[in-house]
């Protein structure tokens, strides 16, 4: 302790300039700066740049994926729209077709019905004619028989018979021309 105090008695000014320390400080810091500049800074900047690039690359990849997905979505939507359109078109067509079929059917049915009606009419006419014919024959026979009985005169002769009946019927027809239509 005593030694130290004796030393301290001649104490230097704390602001005094010590060349050795000044030089050492400069040299040490200079070397440190050089090492940092040479070995640390480039690696840091390189890593930093690489990382930035990696992140930006990731972002770019994500963006392209997003764009792809958007394109796909748009395409799907377009397809969906097309499909809807198509469906509407088909529905419309079906409706038209249905209407046409219905109309056709109706027409056919109408034709059929009228045909049936025609046919019926024709058949009825034919039957009527047949009935008239048979009736005419029947009426002749009956009338002749009846007349023969009534007049008592022999009317065996066929030819005469038929002539008489014809004449009678013609007269009858001429007399009742208007009522023939309502026979049916």
């Amino acid at each position: 302790m005593t030694d130290h105090i004796v030393v301290a008695a001649a104490v230097e000014n704390p602001l005094g300039f010590v060349p050795v320390e000044f030089a050492l400080s400069l040299v040490t810091f200079g070397i440190l700066f050089f090492l940092i500049w040479k070995f640390v800074a480039p690696r840091f900047e390189q890593t930093f740049a690489e990382r930035t690039q990696a992140i930006e690359g990731g972002i770019a990849a994500a963006e392209s994926k997003q764009a792809e997905a958007d394109a796909k979505l748009a395409e799907l939507e377009k397809q969906l729209g097309d499909a809807r359109h198509e469906a509407a078109r088909i529905r419309e067509e079906a409706r038209e077709q249905g209407a046409r079929i219905v109309a056709e059917m109706r027409e056919t049915a109408q034709a059929e019905s009228s045909r049936i009606v025609e046919h019926g009419k024709a058949q009825i006419e034919a039957e009527r004619q047949q009935a008239i014919t048979s009736l005419r024959a029947e009426v002749g026979t009956l009338a002749t028989g009846l007349a023969g009985r009534i007049v008592g005169e022999s009317l065996e002769d066929e030819a005469r018979q038929s002539r008489v009946v014809e004449r009678f019927l013609t007269d009858l027809e001429a007399q009742n021309g208007t009522t023939t239509g309502s026979v049916n």
Binding site: V20, E21, L24, S25, T28, F29, I31, L32, L35, I36, F39, V40, R43, F44, Q46, T47, E50, R51, A54
Partner: peptide, 30 residues
């Protein structure tokens, strides 16, 4: 040349700083 405690500290400080950064960036990865 008399080497005093502050001088040793000065050099030690520089060594520590460089060692830290060198170790940190020796195998720098992303």
């Amino acid at each position: 040349l008399a080497v005093t405690k502050p001088m040793v500290q000065l050099v030690l400080g520089a060594v520590i700083v460089f060692a830290f950064f060198y170790a940190a960036f020796r195998r720098a990865s992303i």
